[in-house]
Simulated scan of single mutants.
Amino acid sequence: MMTMRGLIWFVLLFAAAAGLALVGVFDGGQVLLVMPPYRVDISLNLFVVALVVSFIVIYTVLRAVRSVLKMPQRVSAYRTRSRLAKANAALRDAIGHLYAGRFSKAEKSARDSLIADENAGAAGLIGAKAAHEMNEYARRDEWLAKVQESDWQDARLMATADMRADGRDADGALVALTEMQAQGGRRLHAQQIALRAQQQLKNWGEVLKLVKTLEKREALHPAVAVRLRQVASENLLRDRRHNPDALLEFWQSLSATERQSPRLADLAAELLIALDRRNDARKIVEEALNHNWDARLLRRYPDCASPGDALPLIQRAEAWQKERTEDADLMFTLGRLCLHQQLWGKAQAFLESALKLADNEPLKIRTHRALARLHEQLGDSEKASLHYRESALAMNVV
């Protein structure tokens, strides 16, 4: 670019010189300057040359004077540009140090970048994050207080909520989120932070609402969503463990998938049995077993029998047995139900079948103990002792 510009100037100067040379050939006149008592007579060509040279000299002198007068202003502008460049470089370094995990250096660079007022917002957030990662919460709040610009308030509140939730200050996180929502901000990340805060506060009703909302917006991994829904539902069931009607009302409010969860169904049945609502517990277990066959629910099923009236449950379990003839857990359940109904012969047959089919130690231990109690009821202490001994030997003690 500079080469082309120089070439153009050279061509122009050459053309001007050539033009002056051509004009100078024609000496067409004289210029007479009279200033009594002086008189100067010069050629026209010389006068033109002198006039041009005088203009150039005067212009150059004026430019030099102007430059001298503006020197302080130019020096000040240079210093401002230099300070701004250093501040921006420090801000870039702060970002690099922050994401590289060099939090102390990130905070120092953020502080250096504050020499430019316009960096206050970004530097404040970077410094706050760096201080937070070093567990310097008081210094973190000082950095956040430096963020005063209105354009940065959403960022400040979001960062405050995120860091407070990370620091187990759930109340502080929710206060920041509430303030942000009051200003019209309702974002996906804010709901994710609120979910963490509500978990910490054990506000399981809010957790359940937020999980459903985030799941609809595909902001939670499906496995995480299932786990959180399950944990929230379990705790909400336990909160109603003293009120069977409230417990059943909440149970009906759950989705069909949640009601079919073996873990939730087992807990609900356990709580209802403790409240002597065995018929309701039985319905919950049977519905869940119809969709998800689970050994845990089978173990809970005998507890759902009313005192002295296990026949309906035995009939239902025998219907299942027709389709699952080799299920050891089902055999064990039938054995327990028959024990409950004092059907000693059938109980022994089912329990011995369960023992033959059992492929895991816990089931073998439970079956031996059930057989031991059966023989105690029958007055056969020798066989009872034998099964107690077998249950003890089945344990792997390290």
Rank of each mutant, 00 (worst) to 15 (best):
A176M: 11
V224T: 13
A347T: 02
Q260Y: 10
R296I: 06
K212M: 07
P222G: 09
Q230R: 08
H368I: 02
I42D: 02
F55I: 11
P37F: 03
C304I: 02
R238Q: 12
W9H: 06
L69Q: 11
E286W: 10
A295R: 07
S381D: 12
M35P: 01
K129G: 06
L32M: 04
R282K: 13
L44I: 13
A232I: 09
L343K: 14
M180W: 14
G379D: 00
A384R: 04
W320T: 07
F14N: 12
V23M: 04
W320E: 10
A256E: 15
H132V: 12
P244V: 01
R238S: 11
L386P: 01
L355V: 00
E376H: 04
G6N: 14
I284D: 06
E287C: 06
L20W: 14
I273Q: 10
A370T: 03
D380F: 02
Q199D: 09
D245S: 13
A170C: 04
D329V: 13
Q342V: 02
M1L: 08
P302E: 05
C304P: 00
I365K: 03
V224L: 11
E286G: 04
H368R: 00
G6P: 04
M2S: 12
V53A: 09
E270W: 09
L125F: 13
A256I: 05
A16D: 00
L62C: 01
R39C: 06
D266K: 09
R278I: 01
V31R: 00
A281M: 07
